[in-house]
């Protein structure tokens, strides 16, 4: 498992960690039941504070991605891939709804919106 953090990015380090781990889980590189590095071990490897890694793990646990067992460590929780995918899909749907609304108000038609989306897809 590889985690690369950037000191110069504007994104807080704990967020970089939690989103990278989320991605690994969603992409299937981390499976249900896989043991994550301890918060202290991770802090040492990344040369950051243990408070930061703890915050990242706390967030992941809150969102249901991992489970921490006292004395044993943190494990990738099950079923989340589906749940998360669903959740993300829902968010995308909501955002698309907003886009549809705004575009209609502005008088844009579907093709114009599609063209914008195409360009953005290539940039991201």
């Amino acid at each position: 498992m590889n985690i690369i953090i950037s000191n110069s990015s504007n994104e807080p380090i704990y967020e970089q960690i939690s989103s990278q781990i989320k991605e690994l889980i969603l992409r299937g590189e981390l499976d249900e039941g896989d043991l994550l590095p301890s918060i202290r071990g991770l802090a040492r490897d990344l040369q950051i504070s243990v408070i930061t890694t703890k915050r990242a793990y706390d967030e992941l646990e809150r969102e249901g991605f991992i489970q921490t067992m006292q004395g044993k460590g943190s494990y990738v929780a099950g079923q989340n891939k589906e749940l998360m995918k669903e959740k993300k899909l829902k968010i995308i749907e909501e955002k698309l709804w907003e886009i549809a609304e705004e575009s209609k108000l502005l008088g844009l038609n579907y093709e114009e919106v599609e063209a914008m989306l195409k360009i953005l897809f290539e940039e991201v």
């Binding site: 202290r40 802090a43 040492r44």
Partner: peptide
């Protein structure tokens, strides 16, 4: 610093 990190592995 590396040594200190190792010490702090013990909580």
């Amino acid at each position: 610093l590396d040594i200190l990190y190792n010490i702090i592995q013990d909580e």
